[in-house]
Design a binder for these strands. Structure first.
Lengths: 244, 244
DNA sequence: TCCGGCCAACTGGTCTGGCCAGTCTACCTT
DNA sequence: AAGGTAGACTGGCCAGACCAGTTGGCCGGA
């Protein structure tokens, strides 16, 4: 037993611990979106900390979109909706969108081509399986989170069949960024059906071993998704009517 | 005219503006990952603000993962999360030459193409600079480590001019793997001269804005290096006398 | 000579207390 | 009754002090 000497002081910076505490209250729904926190001075005494420390905590939370500070009015709990869209602007997302999709095209097009060349029986099995599950999930009622997950899984299957581990990992990271950083474009009207058709073309081309067709199908797919995402960014209002 | 009394103070909170300023420096690469910022007290006086305000700005940036604060040491610029994840996922397994070069081709060919399209005066300056230094270093006596470093620097310049940050980070990681994982193929007889010629073609194509030529030059370059590496693997005895 | 401990000079972490600046409301003046 | 205004909230910002980890050099003893 070498844990004899526990640290006396709780770990982490004070402001960090305060931020955690507040965030807990929010996730535990003790504090709901729109609620106003007690005034800084009051809250500071309640927590037994100084105002600067509390303010640092509030800053870090508002930077992550959990709180909104309004001069002269108070500190409020943010809507999760704005949280997600905040991450867009916070990570200078509009600007990144082009780069992100350009990168996806660069990677996914050769991936589809290689997959058509290097396909194996088990590989095709993976693909078919991922494809079937995705199609299945698009039946009413649609669970969008699940669809997004399965869509990513299908793409991952393509890259897996392509047989380049660098490619697989890189696209994995890219996909993760897309999933956490933005909502799926699949729920835009018509996009889901269009996407399904594109997936079919990709799958068929790979099964047929037609590398050229696979590449062009993948390219069309990415560009379709890109165009949808662009339209979505231009008028995000409709999306906010949803639940988010 | 009722705009007679313009606000003296710029809009937004002070801490917010400070955070933006620092973030600008980071994205403009005036501050690079790993760099240490000046001490809080110093930086505060330099910016003409109080330490608490500066600290709030730092908090918000560290909450978003742009800065890392280490007690007793200083404030440091964080590596982008994407790079971290990429590095982690790409370096954690054994590397296959075929896959590595296939990936390089997939990435560097469009990079050269984009660089030709998006070139700017400063971009060309970077390229020319990197190119000149590389040529300079190939004069006798050749410092092979230096040549390898400058070779990587030239390629990095190409990607930088291409203007896709995801691409830059991915290739950065890939390059690192190549540098640490294998010795340069440049010291193989004749390869250095051939490589120099290929670099010239890439540089000229980008300067001319000829995207197509840039792509084919880059492709030829990667394939040349790949072929050399393959020959090298087949008869590695001579090379193993080297140091790596 | 070498090693250990100590100390000083960094660094960020926290606090106190004050004043400035928006926002809202209730009250007072017109 | 309508308007303006003063005050009491709210957060925003600052100065200065002291606490707390980190580091490296200095000094004394082995």
């Amino acid at each position: 037993m070498d844990n004899l000497w526990e640290p006396i002081q709780p770990p982490g910076s004070l402001a960090g611990r305060i931020a955690e505490r507040i965030e807990e209250l929010i996730t535990a729904e003790q504090l709901r979106p729109g609620d106003r926190l007690p005034p800084e001075r009051e809250l500071a005494t309640m927590l037994g900390v100084s105002r600067p420390s509390l303010r640092e905590a509030i800053r870090s939370l508002s930077a992550r979109g959990r709180l909104a500070v309004r001069h002269g009015q108070g500190v409020f709990v943010e809507e999760p909706a704005t949280t997600k869209r905040l991450t867009h602007s916070l990570t200078s997302y509009e600007h990144d969108l082009d780069e992100l999709f350009a990168m996806r095209e660069v990677l996914e097009v050769p991936a589809a081509g290689w997959a058509a060349k290097n396909r194996t029986d088990v590989g095709i099995e993976w693909l078919q399986d991922a494809y079937d599950k995705l199609i299945e999930a698009t039946r009413d009622p649609v669970d969008w989170d699940e669809v997004q997950r399965l869509d990513a899984a299908f793409h991952e299957a393509v890259v897996r069949v392509a047989g380049n581990r660098f490619l697989m990992r890189t696209l994995g990271v890219l996909n993760e960024i897309m999933v956490t950083g933005m909502e799926t474009t699949l729920r835009l009207p018509g996009r889901l059906e269009k996407s399904a058709g594109e997936h079919t073309r990709i799958l068929e081309a790979i099964k047929a071993g037609d590398s050229r067709a696979a590449r062009s199908a993948a390219r069309a797919h990415i560009r379709g998704a890109y165009a949808a995402a662009r339209r979505h960014m231009d008028s995000p209002v409709a999306a906010e009517a949803g639940e988010m």
